[in-house]
Design a protein around this nucleic acid. Structure first.
Length: 927
RNA sequence: GGGUGAAUAGCUCAGCUGGGAGAGCGUCGCCCUUACAAGGCGAAUGUCGGGGGUUCGAACCCCUCUUCACCCACCA
C-alpha cells in the first residue's frame, strides 16, 4: 500500500466493477426497501445540491442493502420542459434563429439531439459520486412508458372533471410566450414609481370638493388603456356621491363607470383605484363581481395591441408606459410622481416581468386531490423529517389554488385533447381513440391541442410511473410505496405535494412513507452558490481537483453578466491561490454527511472537506499498520476468551457503543451524528489509543503467542468491522481496504457492498474494562501533560512514581505497567509505599493517585510552581462554584438526590486534589 | 401583512427529555517516536445575540427586543 492515501487510484475502478457485477440491482430477497431519485434535468450537470442529496440516498441504500433488504434505487431523469427548451433556443439564437424558423417537429428533433449529446453527463457524474443505482432501470419522463402514464392520468382526470379547460387570467411570460404556474413566479421588491393621474369626470360632474376630476394612483400606467372602471370604497364620504357616475378615460376617450367595492382601501393612495380586469388579478375579481368588460390590451410579447388607441399600438409595454406618462403630462393630467417600492413578479426561468393575461388554459381542480393528501400527513401515513416541515406543507395545501398545467411550449408531453371546428373538446389516447370514444364521424376535422404539460405534471407520477404503471407490475407490488423521499425544502410545493396528491389518487396509497427534507448547500458565508456571484463549487472539482487557471476560466465563462468576470477572477485567485486539490469522493461525501444536521442552510466550508480527506488518510494508514502486524502471522479468532487483554475488550466495547450510536442516528436521518460518531471512534479511540496500546503487546517478548494472537485478531477484526460500519458513507476506501482485510480473516467474498452490516452485540459492551482503560489513559495523559508543560523532550525516557492511590490503583498499575511505559515513554514506573519519601517532583493527580515525575535534572522548580498555580486556580474556581451550589439549602432540598450526591463527590474530589497540590507547592517552595 | 428558521470559540457547526460548554479547521509550544507531518503530544480560547421571567438550577422552557435568512400573501 502507498504511504499516502491517493483517492484517484482507489476510486477509478471500483464503480465499474460494482456496476458490471450487478451489485446495484435488487437482491430479490429480504424486506423491500426503495427510494426514487428526484430526477435531475436530463441535460443538466451535477451541482452541490445533487451531490448532497445523492450522497444521502446512497448511504441509505447501501446501509439497507447491507442490512439484507431487497433494495432498489430507482433512477431517471426529467425532461425539464422550460429549462431544456430554453437551452436549445439559446443555441439556435447564437445562429440567429428562433424555434419558429425550424418549426415544431424539427425543433423537437433538435432537443432530442441535445438530450442525446448532453444527456449522459449528469448520470456519469452521479456514478462518480459512487451512487449505487440500478442503472438497468433508468427512466426518462418522456420515454414511452412514462408518457403513457401521463396520458392515462390526464384522460382519467379529465373524464372525472378534475382536469378542465378555462379562460381566465394567468401568469404570462412574455419572453417564453407561455403561461406559468403561481409557483414559477417569484416576486422581488424593486424600486418603482407611483404615478398620480387625473381622471376627468364625464358629463360635467364635480367631486364633493368641486373638482372636475378624481385622482388615481398606479404603478403600471400602461394598463390604463384597458381600464373599464374606477372603484372607490362604498363608505368613502369623499366619493360616495360619484358612485354610478362616469369618467372619461383619458387617452382612450371611453366612458367608464365609478363603482363601489369593499376591496378598495380608502386609506391607501387616493382611495380611488383604476380597474383593469384583463391585466390585474384583483381587478379581474372586481371585474367579475361587477360584470365589467375585460379589455385585453397586450400581445403575447406584452406589446400594446390594437384594442388600444392607435398611438400606442405596437409599443412595448415599458415604452408605452413612458409615452403614456408623457401624454398625460402634456394633457395636464399628471398630478405627481412618487418613488415607490413594489413587488415585481418575474418568471423564475426567464427573469422578465410577468403579465396577468387572459387566455385559455388547462387546470387541475385540486380540492378533491388535496383533501386525502392532507389527511395522509395528518394521520402519519407520511411523515416529514424534520417534522416541522409538515406545517409548511399544511399551510400551502390548505389554501391551494387550481393548478395551471398547460404550457405553450414545444418540449414536453403534448396534451391529449382534440378540437373540432365548433370548439368541442375531445380527450383520449390519440386521434383514433378519440373518434371511437366520442363516436365522431370519420370526416370530422380534428386538431390536437398545441400545448404541452407542465414538467411537474409528469414528475408528480414519478414513484409509480417508473415502476411500470398503469400496468400492474411486480415492481409496483414489491417496491411501492417507496420508503423515503430525500429532497430539499425548495420543492415541497412543486413536487412533494403533487406527488402525494397524484399517487393517492391513482394508486390509493402514499408515494413514500417518509420525506427527509434536507437543507440547501450554500457557500461558507451562507451565500447561495450562483454563477453571477462566482462562488460556485463543482462537486467533481472537489473530487478530482482543479488548477487555478481552469477554475478561473470555468467561473468566468458563459456569464450572463460578463462585467462581473474581473471581480470573480480576483476573488477566486485570492480564495484558491493553489487551485483545489483532489479530495476524492469519499471525503466529499463524508463532508456532506457531517453537515447534514437539521438546519435549512448548509454552509460548505473547505476546511471541513480537507479534514475528512485527512480522515481518509488516517484510515488508510491505520490499515497499513494493521496489515504490517498481521501479514506474517495471520491471526485466528481466539478460542479462549481470556487471551484477550483488557484493552482488547475495551476496543470491542467502544466499537459496539459506536455502532449503536450510528444505528440510532441513521434511524432519524442524523447523518452528521453518524459522521461524528464514526470519526470519533476510529480516530480518537481506535487509532490514538488502541493501535498504540497494541504495540507494547506485539513488541513484548514476554507476551504469550496467544495474547499476541488475540491482539492481532482484535486489530484486524475491529478494522474490518469499522470498514463495514463506514461503507455506506465512504464506499471506495472501505472497499479497497476490505479487499485486503477480509481474506486475512478468512472471509471469501467479492465485495464489501454485499456484506452484512456489523451486528449489535450488547454483550460486548463492557463498563468494567472501560473504567480500567480510562484509568490507564488518565495516568498516561497526566505524564504527557507534565512532559508538555515542562518542556521535557519527547525523545527522553523519564522515571515515574505513583503514590497515595488505593488498592485498585495498585492493581491497575500491575495490569498495565507495560502500556504505561510505552505510551508515556517512561524509563521506569514504580509504586511508592510511603508518600513521605517522595523526592521533589512534578505532580499530577488522577483520582486519589499522585503521579510524580522526579525533578532531578528534568524539571525547573519555578516552572513547576507556575504550572501548579495554574491548576490550583482552576480547582479553586471549581470548588467555589460547587460549594456555593451545595451551600444553597434549596438546591439540596429540591434537586434529585443523585444530582446532589454527584455534586458532593465532585466537591470532595476537588478539595482533596487541591490539598494534594497545595502540599506539593509547600514542598517545592522549601527547596 | 402572516409564517418559519437561525444567532454557541477567530471560522464552519454539534449540543437528545433543563443538572459540570463540545468537534473540525485555525492559533500557540514541543516533536521527522519504525501506520500516518494529510501526522503525534501538550496548551489557550466562549457574560451560549440583549433584557426579563419560571426553576434549587437555563445554551436548552416562557415573554420581549435586536440582527440575519427564508417562505407565503392581491394593497392599487
Amino acid at each position: 500500500m502507498d504511504k499516502t492515501y491517493q483517492p484517484f487510484e482507489i476510486e477509478k475502478s471500483w464503480y465499474e466493477k460494482w456496476e458490471a457485477s450487478g451489485y446495484f440491482k435488487p437482491s430479490g430477497t429480504g424486506t423491500p426497501y426503495s427510494i426514487a431519485i428526484p430526477p435531475p434535468n436530463v441535460t443538466g450537470s451535477l451541482h452541490m445540491g445533487h451531490g448532497f442529496n445523492n450522497a444521502i440516498m446512497d448511504a441509505l441504500i447501501r446501509y439497507h442493502r447491507m442490512k439484507g433488504c431487497n433494495t432498489l434505487w430507482q433512477v431517471g431523469t426529467d425532461h425539464a420542459g422550460i429549462a431544456t427548451q430554453m437551452v436549445v433556443e439559446r443555441q439556435l439564437g447564437a445562429q440567429g434563429k428562433t424555434r419558429h424558423d425550424l418549426g415544431r417537429e424539427q425543433f423537437i428533433e433538435k432537443v432530442w439531439e441535445w438530450k442525446a449529446e448532453s444527456g449522459g453527463n449528469i448520470t456519469r457524474q452521479l456514478r462518480r459520486l459512487g451512487s449505487s443505482i440500478d442503472w438497468s432501470r433508468e427512466r426518462f419522463t418522456m420515454d414511452e412508458g412514462l408518457s403513457r402514464a401521463v396520458e392515462e392520468v390526464f384522460i382519467r382526470l379529465y373524464d372525472e372533471d378534475i382536469i378542465y379547460r378555462g379562460n381566465r387570467l394567468v401568469n404570462w411570460d412574455p419572453k417564453l410566450h407561455t403561461a406559468i404556474s403561481d409557483l414559477e413566479v417569484v416576486s422581488e421588491e424593486e424600486n418603482g414609481s407611483f404615478w398620480y393621474f387625473r381622471y376627468p369626470l364625464a358629463n360635467g360632474e364635480k367631486t364633493a370638493e368641486g373638482k372636475d376630476h378624481i385622482v388615481i394612483a398606479t404603478t403600471r400606467p400602461e394598463t390604463m388603456l384597458g381600464d373599464t372602471a374606477v372603484a372607490v370604497h362604498p363608505d368613502d364620504e369623499r366619493y360616495k356621491a360619484l358612485i354610478g357616475k362616469t369618467i372619461m378615460l383619458p387617452l382612450c376617450d371611453r366612458e367608464i363607470p365609478v363603482i363601489a367595492d369593499e376591496y378598495v382601501d380608502p386609506e391607501f393612495g387616493t382611495g380611488c383605484v383604476k380597474i383593469t380586469p384583463a391585466h390585474d388579478f384583483n381587478d379581474y375579481e372586481i371585474g367579475k363581481r361587477h360584470d365589467l368588460p375585460m379589455i385585453n390590451i397586450l400581445t403575447v410579447d406584452a406589446a400594446i395591441n390594437n384594442n388600444a388607441p392607435k398611438a400606442y399600438t405596437g409599443l412595448d409595454r415599458f415604452i408605452a408606459r413612458k409615452q403614456i406618462v408623457l401624454d398625460m403630462q402634456k394633457s395636464g393630467l399628471l398630478e405627481k410622481i412618487e418613488d415607490h417600492k413594489l413587488k415585481v413578479p418575474r418568471g423564475d426561468r426567464s427573469g422578465v416581468v410577468i403579465e396577468p393575461y387572459l387566455t385559455n388554459q388547462w387546470y387541475v381542480a385540486v380540492e378533491s386531490l388535496a383533501k386525502p393528501a392532507i389527511a395522509a400527513v395528518e394521520n402519519g401515513d407520511i411523515e416529514f423529517v424534520p417534522k416541522n416541515w409538515e406545517n409548511t406543507y399544511f399551510a400551502w395545501m390548505r389554501d391551494l389554488q387550481d393548478w395551471c398545467i398547460s404550457r405553450q411550449l414545444w418540449w414536453g408531453h403534448r396534451i391529449p385533447a382534440w378540437y373540432d371546428d365548433a370548439g368541442n373538446i375531445y380527450v383520449g389516447r390519440g386521434e383514433e381513440h378519440v373518434r371511437d370514444k366520442y363516436s365522431l364521424a370519420a370526416d370530422l376535422l380534428l386538431m390536437q391541442d398545441e400545448d404541452v404539460l407542465d414538467t411537474w405534471f409528469s414528475s408528480a407520477l414519478w414513484t409509480f410511473s417508473t415502476l411500470g404503471w398503469p400496468d400492474d407490475t411486480d415492481e409496483l407490488r414489491t417496491f411501492h410505496p417507496t420508503d423515503v423521499l430525500v429532497t430539499a425544502f425548495d420543492i415541497i410545493f412543486f413536487w412533494v405535494a403533487r406527488m402525494i396528491m397524484m399517487t393517492l389518487k391513482f394508486r390509493g396509497e402514499v408515494p413514500f412513507r417518509k420525506v427527509y427534507i434536507h437543507g440547501l448547500i450554500r457557500d461558507s458565508e451562507g451565500q447561495k452558490m450562483s454563477k453571477s456571484k462566482g462562488n460556485v463549487l463543482d462537486p467533481i472539482d472537489l473530487i478530482d481537483g482543479i488548477d487555478l487557471e481552469k477554475l478561473v476560466a470555468q467561473r468566468t465563462s458563459n456569464m450572463m453578466q460578463p462585467e462581473l468576470a474581473a471581480k470573480i477572477e480576483k476573488k477566486t485567485r485570492k480564495e484558491f491561490p493553489e487551485g483545489i486539490p483532489a479530495f476524492g469522493t469519499d471525503a466529499l461525501r463524508y463532508t456532506f454527511y457531517s453537515l447534514a444536521s437539521t438546519g435549512r442552510d448548509i454552509n460548505f466550508d473547505m476546511g471541513r472537506i480537507e479534514g475528512y480527506r485527512n480522515f481518509c488518510n488516517k484510515i488508510w494508514n491505520a490499515a497499513r499498520y494493521v496489515f504490517m502486524q498481521v501479514e506474517e502471522q495471520k491471526p485466528r479468532a481466539p478460542t479462549d476468551k481470556t487471551d484477550y487483554s483488557q484493552v482488547d475488550l475495551w476496543i470491542h466495547s467502544r466499537f459496539q457503543d459506536t455502532l449503536k450510536k450510528v444505528e440510532d442516528a441513521v434511524a432519524v436521518y442524523r447523518f452528521d451524528l453518524v459522521a461524528q460518531a464514526i470519526y470519533d471512534f476510529f480516530w480518537n479511540e481506535y487509532c490514538d489509543w488502541y493501535l498504540e496500546l497494541s504495540k507494547p503487546v506485539l513488541w513484548d517478548d514476554n507476551a504469550t503467542n496467544a495474547q499476541k494472537n488475540a491482539t492481532r485478531h482484535t486489530l484486524l477484526d475491529i478494522l474490518e468491522q469499522s470498514l463495514r460500519l463506514l461503507h455506506p458513507f465512504m464506499p471506495y476506501i472501505t472497499e479497497e481496504i476490505w479487499q485486503k482485510a477480509a481474506p486475512l480473516l478468512g472471509i471469501k467474498d467479492d465485495t464489501i457492498m454485499l456484506q452484512p452490516y456489523p451486528q449489535q452485540d450488547a454483550g460486548s459492551i463492557n463498563t468494567v474494562v472501560d473504567i480500567e482503560v480510562e484509568w490507564l489513559k488518565g495516568v498516561i495523559i497526566a505524564v504527557r501533560n507534565i512532559r508538555g508543560e515542562m518542556n521535557i523532550s519527547p525523545a527522553r525516557d523519564i522515571p515515574v512514581l505513583l503514590t497515595k492511590g488505593g488498592e485498585r490503583d495498585r492493581q491497575f498499575l500491575g495490569n498495565n505497567a507495560q502500556f504505561l511505559v510505552k505510551l508515556a515513554k517512561l524509563e521506569s514506573v514504580s509504586w511508592l509505599d510511603d508518600p513521605g519519601t517522595a523526592p521533589p517532583a512534578s505532580m499530577q493527580v488522577v483520582g486519589e493517585l499522585e503521579v510524580l515525575v522526579p525533578l532531578a535534572g528534568l524539571i525547573d522548580v519555578a516552572a513547576e510552581l507556575g504550572r501548579l498555580a495554574k491548576e490550583r486556580d482552576k480547582l479553586e474556581k471549581e470548588i467555589a462554584r460547587l460549594a456555593g451550589k451545595l451551600g444553597n439549602a434549596k438546591f439540596v432540598e429540591n434537586a434529585p438526590t443523585d444530582v446532589v450526591a454527584k455534586e458532593r463527590e465532585k466537591l470532595s474530589n476537588a478539595e482533596s486534589t487541591l490539598n494534594q497540590l497545595q502540599d506539593q507547592v509547600d514542598k517545592l517552595e522549601q527547596l
